[in-house]
């Protein structure tokens, strides 16, 4: 009697190797993120670039059409754009440098232990928590020349005899809005740097103290180097934010008086929502994007390696 033999069929060879499948699965997981970023970041950028090549003034639909680089040529000859770029530089430099110095000082103070520290920390955060528009309204009232708080205090204390138009004087308007932005942005640096300070091991300070290092030396050779990575990231982030931050100025001065506080982001808003010139507003946005890209590359290059020190 013949015996039946069952042969095991050889396993089918998978279409893709194990490594390829793992790689593909990884990419599949990335699809939602790619889609989300594509829709919310990439598409608007490409759309803005596309719009910048068109004459797209909403109140003149008849004139809509492709104009090539005409909007960019207009930008190069636009005096207000160059003025707004210079104002943006003053705005960013003035705001971020003093925010950093003030925030650093606050972080060093808050790092000390004292009674009520938690309460003081919370209060320090307040300007950052309040919405930008509300901050602008509060400071607009403070600066109001006729019945504002600042002029009232200065005149009651005899510091000044004539009322000062803080926001209506072209020479004072920019410093005034910068002071407001410093007040608003200081807590950001304070909190970031405080977190960094708390991460520095106490042994380092103890060892330095045993070696006879002074307070200043400990600050220069331990605190600063250990905080450098945070300083680099926080400053870069803040510079980009401030450059694009239009709320304060838009509410307080609308870019005036006489364009004295007109920064590129408020100028872009003006073109888009007052002139309804979306083509030119898109051109300004693309220019802003390029300026920020160049700045970021330059900044990261000069601070290369610092972010990895800690």
């Amino acid at each position: 009697m013949a015996r039946e033999a069952t042969l095991v069929a050889p396993a089918a060879r998978p279409l893709l190797s194990r490594r390829a499948r793992e790689l593909l699965t990884g990419y599949l997981y990335l699809i939602p993120v790619i889609l989300a970023l594509g829709c919310t970041v990439l598409f608007p950028i490409l759309k803005a670039m596309h719009m910048s090549l068109y004459n797209h003034v909403l109140i003149r639909p008849q004139e809509y059409g492709y104009v090539g680089l005409a909007n960019y040529a207009r930008l190069l000859h636009d005096e207000t754009f160059w003025l707004s770029l210079w104002n943006s530089f003053l705005w960013v430099f003035g705001s971020v440098s003093f925010q950093f110095l003030g925030g650093f000082a606050a972080a060093l103070l808050l790092h000390q232990s004292f009674r009520g520290r938690a309460l003081v920390r919370t209060i320090t955060l307040l300007p950052w928590i309040i919405p930008g528009v509300v901050v602008a309204l509060i400071w607009e009232f403070i600066y109001q020349p006729n019945y504002g708080l600042l002029n009232d205090i200065l005149s009651r204390t005899g510091v000044m005899t004539e009322r000062v138009a803080w926001l209506a004087n072209p020479g004072l308007a920019m410093p005034a809005v910068i002071v407001t932005n410093i007040w608003r942005g200081m807590p950001f640096f304070a909190i970031m740097l405080l977190a960094g300070l708390q991460a520095i091991p106490g042994e380092l300070y103890e060892a330095a103290r045993v070696d006879g290092a002074s307070v200043f030396q400990r600050f220069c050779f331990i605190t600063l180097p250990m905080l450098k990575p945070i300083i680099v990231v926080a400053t870069a982030t803040r510079i980009v934010w401030t450059f694009n931050y239009a709320d304060l100025i838009f509410v307080m001065t609308s870019g005036g008086p006489a364009n004295a506080t007109q920064i590129t982001s408020t100028y872009t808003l003006l073109q888009a929502y007052s002139n309804l010139d979306f083509g030119y507003a898109a051109t300004l946005s693309v220019a802003l994007l390029l300026i920020m890209l160049v700045f970021t590359v330059f900044y990261l290059r000069i601070t290369r390696g610092l972010e990895g020190v800690a």
Binding site: Q144, P145, N146, R163, A165, L167, A168, N169, T253, A258
Partner: peptide
């Protein structure tokens, strides 16, 4: 005129 004129809009003059 008050020193606030350059930034006084509609609300500014009415409230002034």
């Amino acid at each position: 005129c008050p020193p606030s004129v350059p930034t006084d809009g509609w609300r500014g003059i009415v409230e002034g």
